[in-house]
């Protein structure tokens, strides 16, 4: 029997449900990119499961014509873990937001990544609570004025990538909703990664936090303020590609190419660096003035996959003890006969 996969088109992954995000929402672009990438992965459609929590982004599963689970606030990583570790054959993706995955669900997010369960986490980061209409989120900038912080937020924000790298996530990447080719490239790489993949997608909420990422998305500013990471390539950025990132002790510095500074002096990106400290350094650099925001794949390393380890352990014990017989279990321990 030949098991040839049907040739899927984008529309095969579009459900019959009306998409109900606000017009102009960045979520549309992310949905479109995912629907464009899934048909190309060579995976049967029925093997996909999209899991979400609560929030605007978490409506995602309803719009995907795959198996889907719209969970409860913050818990998508835990639900997805239950699916993946009992059914490693399934291709499990989580769609979540900055409030969902970093506030109420922060615990589940870090533990999913720590275990390296083979689940892809798409974090839609718009730095605001949209569905509850405009409260500040754990990624909102310090001083953010929002419905619940009329005098400015006093909370220091999370950097989602630093958080993921802090728990040694094996695949950590960032893209932007409107950078469609880039986003699709990152999604494909995430799909190909065996373990946990954590992808932060910078996403615009044009209703409650419009322009949150303007510094990175504005055509005039984009090249100066972002740096696209390419494995094996020097860290170069700028409209004229005349600036680069150089190591200075345990820090990074921005240098201008020329005047004795060449690409050979720059950091050569190594996404396979086993030490997460390298990617961590990248994730932190735009906290300093003058530095660009990195996009692309910060880290991609191999590590044992949790769901496969579980299956392997079961196989090992079963091989050693033989398949469990119910009668043996019931008769375990000392027994005695009453006549």
């Amino acid at each position: 029997m030949s098991a040839t996969l049907p040739v899927y088109k984008k529309k095969d992954f579009q459900s019959d449900q009306d998409v109900r995000w606000c017009p102009g929402c960045g979520d549309y672009a992310i949905l479109s990119a995912v629907q464009a990438v899934f048909p190309e992965l060579g995976i049967p459609k029925e093997k996909f499961v999209v899991v979400s929590g609560i929030g605007c982004s978490s409506r995602f599963p309803y719009y995907m014509n795959t198996f889907g689970f719209h969970g409860i606030h913050g818990r998508a990583p835990a639900i997805a873990t239950g699916i993946k570790i009992t059914r490693p054959d399934l291709e499990v993706w989580v769609a979540t937001g900055d409030g969902d995955s970093l506030s109420i669900g922060g615990n589940h997010t870090i533990h999913l990544l720590r275990r390296n369960v083979g689940i892809k986490v798409l974090l839609f980061n718009n730095r605001i609570y949209g569905l509850t209409k405009g409260q500040y989120s754990p990624t909102s900038e310090l001083g953010k004025r929002s419905k619940s912080t009329p005098y400015g937020s006093l909370d220091r924000p999370f950097n989602p990538l630093s958080l993921a790298l802090g728990v040694e996530a094996t695949f950590v990447a960032r893209s932007v909703d409107i950078f469609q080719p880039h986003l699709k490239g990152v999604l494909k790489r995430a799909a190909a990664h065996g373990g946990s993949a954590f992808i932060e997608v910078l996403q615009n909420c044009n209703i409650f936090n419009d322009g949150a990422w303007e510094r990175l998305t504005d055509k005039g500013l984009r090249d100066e303020n972002t740096i696209s990471l390419e494995h094996g390539q020097p860290l170069v950025f700028g409209k004229n590609r005349d600036k680069g990132i150089r190591r200075k002790g345990l820090e990074l510095e921005v240098v201008t190419l020329g005047d004795g500074v060449s690409e050979d002096d720059l950091v050569i990106h190594d996404e396979h660096n086993p030490n997460p400290a390298y990617a961590f350094l990248l994730s932190r650099m735009d906290a300093q003035p003058g530095f660009p925001t990195p996009i692309g794949i910060l880290r991609s390393v191999d590590a044992p996959r949790y769901e496969l380890e579980i299956a392997e352990q079961i196989n090992r014990v079963t091989e050693k003890k033989g398949p469990g017989e119910l009668a043996t279990l019931l008769h375990g321990g000392d027994t005695w006969e009453v006549k």
Partner: peptide, 8 residues
């Protein structure tokens, strides 16, 4: 939650 996922 993991149990609910496993049930699904």
């Amino acid at each position: 939650c993991a149990a609910v996922g496993a049930a699904f």
